[in-house]
Amino acid sequence: MIELHRHGPIHEIRLARPPVNALTPELLAALRTAVQAAPADGARAIILTGGSKVFSGGMDVPHLMGLDRAALGPGWASLFAAARAIANCPVPVVAAIGGHSPAGGCVLALCCDYRIMARGPFRIGLNEVQVGLVAPDAIQHLMRRVVGPYRAERLLVSGALVESEMAQAIGLVDELTDAEHVLVRARHWLEELLALPSAAMLATRRIARADLVAALEGFDDRQLDGFIDAWYAPDTQAALQALVARLKK
């Protein structure tokens, strides 16, 4: 479910669970392990990427719907654990987004230092509201820090997914390029960063990202329990079941 490629000091971690890299606890655990292991394995920077049409379709809802409550909590906790691993990574991480990136895919991308997205009719955003879920404050913080509080409110409350051109215009992604050049641009951006004095760059980065780390670490078991309670609300279950029915078509 994870492919690893080395480009000298830049390591590429590719989500590899076709067709849409839907996130399961197993995939997220593998991602967390890969991100945490890369610096010790010589990585001075990381590219996180996915498929050519879909970076990640978000959490695997049909899989989650088949879990009982005892397994559902750890299932959702795995998303936060992977997000924390990216946020806490001691080396820069670029998201190379070759296609759509809704919900959990957007969460992972927002934890990266920089986001490069393929130009075209690809959408990205936190659309949890559309399936009856509440994005926790820790996740909302990720959106607020890149697009500002008011714009984040509008996007989150409506569960909007925006196309790549709009995503760049509002700061949700940093750069657009042709799909075939997404990985190349990610490497070039990191190479420019790695050319800077390392100690100063990494220390400045650590200070600048402290709010991101704190927000994710603040999502505790009590808040996770509240999220799971909301999962079982009748209107949420109805919306999730409708989503699963659409996915089966």
Results as ranks from 00 to 15, higher is better:
residue 240 L to G: 10
residue 238 A to E: 14
residue 221 D to C: 09
residue 207 I to N: 07
residue 61 V to H: 04
residue 248 K to C: 03
residue 25 P to V: 13
residue 213 V to G: 05
residue 202 L to P: 01
residue 225 D to R: 15
residue 153 E to N: 14
residue 220 D to G: 14
residue 40 A to P: 06
residue 82 A to Q: 05
residue 235 D to Q: 15
residue 61 V to R: 03
residue 4 L to C: 11
residue 236 T to W: 02
residue 210 A to P: 00
residue 234 P to S: 08
residue 141 H to T: 12
residue 102 P to K: 07
residue 200 A to W: 01
residue 40 A to C: 06
residue 25 P to A: 11
residue 90 P to L: 02
residue 149 P to F: 04
residue 3 E to G: 07
residue 171 G to E: 02
residue 210 A to F: 05
residue 226 G to Y: 06
residue 237 Q to W: 01
residue 124 I to R: 05
residue 229 D to P: 04
residue 62 P to I: 03
residue 99 G to A: 08
residue 8 G to Q: 04
residue 95 A to R: 01
residue 3 E to V: 11
residue 233 A to C: 02
residue 87 A to Q: 05
residue 84 R to M: 03
residue 9 P to S: 11
residue 152 A to S: 14
residue 185 R to L: 13
residue 205 R to M: 10
residue 209 R to E: 14
residue 108 L to E: 01
residue 234 P to Q: 08
residue 165 E to K: 05
residue 72 L to Q: 05
residue 17 R to M: 12
residue 239 A to C: 13
residue 105 G to C: 04
residue 133 L to R: 11
residue 216 L to M: 00
residue 245 A to P: 12
residue 3 E to C: 09
residue 172 L to I: 08
residue 83 A to Q: 00
residue 43 A to C: 07
residue 138 A to E: 06
residue 11 H to D: 01
residue 176 L to P: 11
residue 72 L to C: 07
residue 242 A to E: 14
residue 222 R to T: 12
residue 194 L to H: 04
residue 121 P to V: 09
residue 191 E to Q: 14
residue 244 V to P: 07
residue 142 L to K: 07
residue 67 L to M: 15
residue 79 L to K: 01
residue 136 P to K: 03
residue 98 G to D: 08
residue 25 P to T: 11
residue 56 S to V: 08
residue 73 G to L: 14
residue 8 G to I: 03
